[in-house]
């Protein structure tokens, strides 16, 4: 028994050490800051105050939290609706095709988020590729009928652009867990359902979806959490109304130089995340029972 444990300890020790030193310790420092106050330009006094948390509950910041949750929720919903058919299609592909299709889903991860976001700007802007194409078609039609001059669509710098950008970035987070759940599904259950007279849609809703539920829930959780903390996308694609909570946190750490308040805002976000993960774990446990 004990001879079994030694290799386990040896393999576990380095990652645990890494986790402790570079993740838990810095996180604890920021957590401590959230109970502190600025005592000068560079010093933070950890006074155990709850004032920073009280400030996060002001209607101004609660409103921003709610709005961010709304944006992240809508993003997650669109990812789910768009990702489910994709994941299902991949499970029915041949083994060879599967590998390639999964690779295609993961491919965007190989390019930096910032670069992908700038590419979206080039596509969506007033003189971008979408409007460029539309203008070209408009001009062709204009040679047949008389048309008013082309007005470019306003695709960039609004909330719709932020949602579009977030869906684009987070779709793989949804497709991969959905795929892994659907792939494990026993095909004979679907055949049985169809044989016994249920239609395609009914089979989908009554058989496939309930069986894939754990995958759906973990897809929702791991899409919603990063979308809630999105910061680059609203900054670059958004308009004057697109501020999300992460943008406020960033500005507290930089422009406002108020680290304790920024830390409190981040930890509120962290507590929400932990609650979500706990709820997910509980539902899975109940299912297993």
């Amino acid at each position: 028994m004990s001879s079994d444990r030694r290799p386990l300890a040896v393999t576990l020790a380095p990652p645990l050490f890494w986790l402790l030193l570079f993740f838990l310790v810095p996180l604890a420092v920021v957590w401590a800051y959230s109970f502190g106050r600025n005592a000068g330009l560079t010093e933070i006094e950890i006074s155990g105050t709850f004032a920073n948390y009280a400030r996060t509950l002001e209607p101004l910041y609660l409103g921003i939290f709610l709005k961010s949750a709304g944006v992240a929720g809508l993003t997650t919903l669109i990812c789910l609706v768009a990702g489910f058919p994709v994941a299902l299609a991949i499970t029915f592909a041949s083994d060879r095709a599967k590998t390639w299709l999964l690779l295609l889903v993961m491919l965007p991860f190989w390019t930096n988020l910032l670069i992908r976001t700038y590419a979206l700007i080039a596509v969506l802007r007033d003189e971008g590729y979408v409007n460029f194409t539309l203008e070209w078609i408009w001009a062709r039609l204009g040679s047949i009928w008389t048309l008013p001059p082309f007005v470019p669509l306003e695709l960039l710098h609004n909330n719709a652009a932020v949602i579009f950008g977030l869906v684009y970035v987070h779709l793989p987070f949804m497709v991969l867990p959905l795929y892994s759940a659907l792939d494990r599904l026993d095909r004979s259950l679907i055949e049985a359902s169809l044989d016994l007279g249920a239609g395609q849609l009914r089979t989908m809703l009554r058989v496939v979806v309930p069986l894939a539920l754990p995958g759906i829930i973990s897809g929702i959780v791991i899409t919603f959490i990063p979308a809630l903390g999105a910061y680059l996308t609203p900054d670059l694609l958004g308009g004057p109304d697109s501020q999300m909570i992460a943008n406020v946190i960033e500005r507290q750490f930089k422009r406002a130089n108020d680290w304790p308040f920024g830390a409190a805002l981040s930890f509120i976000l962290m507590y929400l995340t932990l609650i979500m993960i706990a709820v997910q774990a509980m539902t899975e446990k109940r299912k297993a029972r």
């Binding site: 330009l41 921003i64 709005k67 501020q243 500005r251 507290q252 422009r255 406002a256 130089n257 108020d258």
Partner: peptide, 17 residues
């Protein structure tokens, strides 16, 4: 002073929200 920077930032956050 830090107080002033913080007041500027709060005003702009409020306006953006």
């Amino acid at each position: 002073g830090a107080e002033k920077s913080s007041a500027f930032e709060t005003a702009i956050t409020k306006m953006r929200a």
